[in-house]
């Protein structure tokens, strides 16, 4: 593949893949530490009915309508999860499981009833996305990166994903101390006057933002994998949270690039024709990285929490 072809066909999918991975991996670190890893999974699933409803209402299946539908569904899901948890008095994981399964199923039913062939919206597409299709038609080579006309024709998912990534990184940097403190020791943070409930909600909102925008660009599989695998692998590399975030960003980016290239060229390497889904391959690669970290990560043999019951009330 020459430079012009690479810029036209592969540059934008690669960048979007990397940005989506990083955007999900960043809040994923906090979700895992707060035992809320499943919420990324939940949000990625519940956006489906949101998008279908948005289409039924607006007749559009792209851009702002889709994003609004996805964001609305994420919001409904967060409220429902909280309601089920409080009214049903069941543990958060089960509440999430109930809500996201029911909403995803509702999305599938709605989709079946609507005219999906005309919408280019099918379950497979929603799950796996179509990273390979996010090409840059107007690019003629590396010089197009500085060409305003070509840049204007850039697929809108790229700047949107980049903006979300930047926003999340800045938010984490700015509110690092409250976020870390309320995740590590909520009682102490509350005693210091930090608004721990607001902070907890803020982390879920950050995850929802990443999941919704990433879903719109690359489908559900990449966010689901990236919320968990890169931070999980990163935890096995270091005992410092700052370093863990850096590792998770690196692992997410490596998984995106390696997965994309393997999807395109991997089958040829083992003598097969064609290619496989880039999103699927990226998710598999992130799982492989987690597996390698489990086997070789320097911090894999951590001491278990010391025994000690919760005495007193």
């Amino acid at each position: 593949m020459n430079g012009a072809e690479f810029v036209q066909l592969s540059l934008t999918p690669l960048l979007i893949g990397v940005l989506a991975a990083v955007a999900c991996a960043l809040p994923g670190n906090f979700l895992i530490l707060r035992r809320q890893a499943l919420i990324g999974d939940a949000i990625s699933h519940v956006v489906l009915p949101g998008i279908v409803v948005a289409f039924l209402l607006s007749g559009q299946a792209t851009g702002p309508a889709m994003l609004a539908g996805a964001a609305g569904a994420a919001l409904v899901a967060v409220v429902l999860i909280e309601l089920v948890r409080r009214l049903g008095r069941i543990e958060p994981g089960a509440a999430m499981g109930v809500v996201f399964t029911a909403m995803f199923a509702l999305g599938v039913l709605l989709l079946e009833q609507s005219d999906s062939s005309a919408v280019h919206l099918d379950v497979e597409h929603a799950l796996m996305g179509n990273l390979e299709s996010l090409i840059w038609f107007d690019a003629e080579g590396w010089h197009s990166v500085a060409d305003p006309v070509a840049l204007a024709a850039l697929t809108p998912e790229l700047p949107r994903m980049a903006a979300v990534c930047l926003l999340l990184a800045l938010t984490l940097r700015l509110f690092w101390r409250p976020l870390v403190l309320s995740t590590f020791d909520e009682g102490f943070a509350a005693g210091q006057g930090y608004p721990v409930r607001v902070i907890g909600l803020g982390i879920v909102v950050m995850a929802a933002l990443a999941a919704v925008v990433a879903f719109d660009a690359v489908g559900a599989i990449i966010p689901i994998a990236m919320f968990i695998c890169p931070p999980g692998a990163a935890r096995l590399m270091t005992d410092r949270l700052g370093a863990q975030l850096a590792w998770s960003v690196a692992f997410g980016a490596v998984a995106a690039v390696a997965g994309y290239l393997l999807a395109g060229h991997g089958p040829a390497l083992i003598g097969l024709d064609g290619s496989v889904s880039a999103a699927g391959m990226i998710a598999v690669t992130s799982g492989l990285i987690l597996g390698l970290a489990c086997l070789f990560g320097p911090r894999r043999g951590r001491a278990a929490a010391p025994p000690g019951g919760r005495a007193g009330a």
């Binding site: 530490l33 995740t183 935890r235 410092r240 949270l241 863990q244 951590r302 919760r310």
Partner: peptide, 8 residues
């Protein structure tokens, strides 16, 4: 009440 596995 503390998460002793926390990377800190």
């Amino acid at each position: 009440s503390v998460d002793w596995d926390f990377p800190v």
